[in-house]
Nucleic acid binder design. Structure first.
Length: 883
RNA sequence: GGGCGUAUGGCUCAGUUGGUUAGAGCGCUGCCUUCACACGGCAGAGGUCACAGGUUCGAAUCCUGUUACGCCCACCA
């Protein structure tokens, strides 16, 4: 499914756009501007293949990134812009370090969000029983109610999914290109489509063959709206109002009533036991005896289990099959019978349960049959009131209830057959192995590893991967049917890998005929699809062409970096580690980088309302891509960051400053290439620059792009405010001093531009094009060594005061004097006397002409003092010239 | 209940091995239409570094405890 290499042959660089100044380089604009940079350079990068992955490089020369495939079921928001920019800065840094950067984009167009979006967009719903319609056209307007949506075949439904996601993906790609992500668009993958299906099915079959995947009929959490089982990782607690109902159970030994408190009185009919803590003296005498349930009069045992909490409710609880996950634990560990009443639709079954053996009980059940939990509860409370077994009034409480994270109704627990992948939830040994994988992984920021450990240590079951949905990767299995048409789930029919991908609903297993499907003695296809995470957990394998493109795989796997959001450590990150652990006995990547969230100005997680108002394309239009990237990159790794257009304005100002400062530096004319840097001020500046390069490099190596940006920016402003002003007078002149300044300026500019390039790709490329060949994004990341060698003693290693620092300090005093006198900074100064320590005066002496020129000072005297006090700078302004 | 993170001027944040007087930008005030830049520039005001102890010659930084906010996790009758 890899796309063909992207468009080529689009228009190249537009020449002759700029008129140069008299002394300027030929490409230097009169009035530099940010306008139009995105369109122009975007086209050039595409035409030149600037970000194309070079797959001739060996693994050691490659930096490969497991890009998060955004869910193509709506729109990208500011949060995406934020985190994808972070990754892009790293990608650009690595590319400039000489790595061949493998940076594909993926689209997650597989799963429930897509299904839901397609249903609502077209007004259709999938019904596997409906036949395929060639050339099906969805309704003009979706029906108002979901029930009235057009019922269509699975194949028609999938076609609509593909149609809608295709157009969504184009919109996404445009935004990413505009933002300047340095993605190789020829390597794009999607999570639906034959290649991904094949990889996903292959990985599953290998899990199955090694015993890592298994199926089991068991109580599982069930979403009644989506009608599918869900996994532990997809749960979300929501606080919901409820009420404690005190119910009377009757001792069969004639000892009176036992009172239990429950929030789900409607489940009395499925009660299989009462339970109290083994040490609870109040109930110890009852263990081993039986009681009868209210209303239904069913006899159930009283049992002991340590999970029962004496101080909760009355200290004794009813166990139902199943009210919550604790019920499942008790049911399993106490070996209790199953009396399930709630079906997959979330309603109480119509059939009267066989364990009800009185007419009264059966009549009572008739009043709750067919009802959903809420309606059943109302009826049940009525029944309990009538029988006098509801003691007092229900006491309202608020309590956490488990929801499917995308669902809006509480989960029920329904017994179904499901597929699982072992993930350590039931094996201490496997759990430890996976914890060890977490320890081997580089986490950025490091503290995020706790979330992984927390999650793995808290697992209480294996990973449920089957979903009773339509759009997704099918479980690639069939089952033999016996003479009664009962499937043999223990010995599935497995397709050969060469046949993948298969759809067991359409394809026929070897040795069977199509008309044997669903016939006694024949076969049946597994009806389920895999959970979206079961496929997403394979993004490293999908992106790198596992078993599809062995050459690519060898050059890119295991990957270097997985960028992702921190709230999906338990799902995406963990499941990816599990799959690679099984398949490759390795980590899928060496590093995980976690991005924070975008917060409202009031520090809450960006709300839907705000998120919908702030449209990324508008931001890019309004502020420019570089400015938006600047804002994004100033958010530290893993840290939640406030949405702040103010930061974007600063980014824009920075970009403009880069244009203008560059124009100045380059407009001085090109010095002889071998002209030496001789002046102390220039050498000191280059020495400081070397330190900056080291710092930025160190920060990037630690994935701390924000720090690299912050340091570079800090240097750059001082460079402009102080160095540029100090050097200006000399640089305008001629001779060795001017040549030194011009060489140093060009060197500094080239270095600073490259340090900024990962953050501000457009403006840096623009300036680069004024005086250098090729793309800055293919240029070499600056090295401090040559700068430091050039700077020599001026590196400041000996602890002597830097002449740049002293000069800037004195210049600042002169500026303040002018500011206090409320005169122009250009106002002439007759005399400046600097009184300072010997070493600082010595530093100043080396640059005294530059300082005098920058401050328009006629005479600059220095006085050495051995005092400890601060430097004294006396400024005598020239009298204002008479007009 | 367990874990993690954050707390620095009105706002957004730097402050990496503890080291002089805690920095920057925004906003605010004043000045400057200076030949790179008015989509500017220069200068200024503004902080008991959440709180309480402790270690140290020295703490925003290290330790202990507390508080607030946020997040992750948890069997939630």
């Amino acid at each position: 499914m890899y796309r063909e290499p992207g468009r080529t042959g689009s228009e190249g660089r537009k020449g002759g756009r700029y008129r140069g100044g008299p002394m300027a380089s030929p490409n230097l604009p009169d009035k530099p501007s940010l306008d139009g940079l995105e369109d122009r350079w975007g086209a050039v990068w595409e035409a030149d293949g600037t970000y194309r992955f070079d797959r001739t490089k060996e693994r050691s020369e490659v930096f490969s990134i497991d890009t998060p495939p955004p869910t193509v079921s709506g729109s990208l928001h500011v949060g995406h812009v934020f985190s994808y920019t972070h990754t892009d800065t790293i990608a650009r840094y690595q590319r400039m370090q000489g790595k061949s950067v493998f940076y594909p984009m993926g689209w997650d167009d597989n799963g429930l969000p897509t299904e839901r979006r397609v249903e609502n967009y077209y007004g259709v719903r999938c019904d596997p029983a409906v036949k395929y319609v060639e050339g099906y056209a969805p309704p003009e307007k979706p029906a108002k109610k979901r029930q009235d949506y057009d019922a269509i075949s699975r194949r028609n439904f999938i076609e609509l999914c593909e149609e809608l996601t295709e157009s969504d993906e184009q919109v996404f790609e445009q935004l990413w290109r505009h933002l300047g992500l340095s993605i190789d668009w020829s390597m794009t993958y999607s999570t639906v489509g034959p290649t991904t299906q094949r990889i996903s099915q292959r990985a599953f079959l290998r899990n199955l063959a090694r015993g890592e995947a298994y199926s089991q009929e068991a109580p599982s959490l069930w979403d009644v709206t989506f009608q599918t089982a869900v996994a532990q990782a997809e749960l979300e607690d929501k606080d919901r109002p409820g009420a404690y109902h005190d119910l009377a159970f009757h001792r069969t030994d004639g000892g009176g009533d036992i009172v239990i408190s429950t929030t789900r009185p409607e489940l009395v009919v499925s009660c299989v036991a009462l339970v109290a803590h083994p040490d609870d003296e109040r109930y110890q005498p009852l263990f081993g005896t039986t009681v009868t349930t209210p209303v239904f009069g069913v006899e159930v045992p009283v049992r002991a289990h340590p999970l029962a909490e004496p101080d909760k409710g009355t200290g004794i609880a009813m166990i139902c099959t199943f009210g919550d996950t604790t019920d499942v634990t008790w049911w399993r560990e106490l070996d209790l019978p199953t009396r399930a009443v709630i079906g997959k639709d979330g309603r109480f079954g119509f059939a009267t349960p066989e364990w009800l053996d009185t007419d009264g009980a059966r009549e009572a059940y008739g009043r709750i049959a067919g009802k959903a939990a809420g309606g059943a509860q109302i009826q049940m409370v009525e029944l309990l009131r009538e029988s006098g077994e509801l003691l007092g009034e229900p006491k309202p409480i608020t309590h956490p209830v488990k929801f499917y994270e995308k669902g809006d109704k509480p989960l029920e627990i329904v017994t179904t057959r499901q597929w699982y992948i072992r993930n350590g939830g039931r094996s201490a040994e496997l759990r430890e192995a996976l914890l060890e994988r977490g320890r081997q992984l580089g986490w950025h920021p490091d503290y995020m590893r706790h979330r992984y450990e927390n999650w793995v240590e808290g697992l209480n079951g294996d990973w449920l991967i089957s979903r009773q949905r339509f759009f997704g990767v099918p479980i690639p299995l069939w089952y033999r049917l016996d003479a009664d048409g009962v499937p043999d789930h223990d010995d599935p029919i497995v397709p050969p890998e060469a046949d993948l991908p298969i759809d067991p609903q359409a394809d026929v297993p070897a040795g069977f005929l199509a008309d044997e499907r669903d016939q006694p003695g024949g076969f049946t296809g597994d009806p389920d699809v895999m959970d979206t995470w079961a496929t997403s957990s394979l993004t490293p394998q999908i992106a790198t062409g596992w078993e599809e493109d062995p050459d690519l795989f060898a050059r890119t796997f295991p990957m270097d970096m997985r960028p992702q959001a921190h709230e999906i450590i338990r799902t995406w990150l963990f499941s990816t580690v599990v799959r690679a652990h099984y398949e490759h006995d390795a980590l899928p990547w060496a590093n995980a980088t976690l991005s924070g969230w975008i917060l409202d100005p009031d520090r809450k997680k960006m709300s839907k309302s705000v998120g919908n108002v702030v449209v990324p394309t508008d931001l890019l239009e309004q502020h420019g891509a570089d400015a938006v990237r600047y804002w994004a990159a100033s958010g530290r790794p893993g840290t939640d960051t406030a949405f702040d257009p103010g930061q974007m304005k600063i980014g824009r100002r920075l970009s403009i400053k880069i244009l203008n400062a560059s124009k100045f530096a380059l407009g001085l004319g090109e010095p002889a290439p071998d002209a030496p840097v001789t002046e102390a001020l220039d050498l000191a500046m280059l020495g400081e620059l070397a330190g900056l390069v080291d710092e930025a490099t160190r920060a990037f190596e630690a994935f701390d792009y924000a720090r690299a940006l912050q340091r570079t920016e800090e240097f750059f402003w001082r460079f402009c405010d102080d160095y540029l002003e100090l050097v200006k007078g000399r640089a305008y002149g001629d001779g060795a001093g001017a040549a030194s300044a011009r060489i140093a300026l060009r060197l500094a500019l080239s270095t600073i531009l490259r340090l900024f390039a990962p953050f501000l790709p457009y403006v840096t490329e623009e300036v680069w094009s004024w005086h250098q060949g090729g793309s800055i994004h293919r240029a070499t990341w600056p090295a401090s060594g040559s700068l430091r060698a050039l700077a020599g003693d001026a590196s400041g290693a000996d602890g002597a005061p830097s002449c740049l620092v002293v000069a800037a300090d004195v210049l600042g005093r002169i500026r303040k004097a002018k500011s206090d006198a409320k005169v122009s900074q250009r106002a002439a100064v007759d005399l400046v006397t600097v009184t300072d320590t010997a070493d600082r005066i010595a530093a100043l002496a080396a640059v005294i002409d530059d300082v005098a020129a920058a401050g328009t000072v006629a005479t600059l005297d220095t006085v050495v003092t051995d005092g400890e006090g601060e430097a004294i700078v006396d400024v005598v302004l020239a009298p204002p010239a008479e007009a």
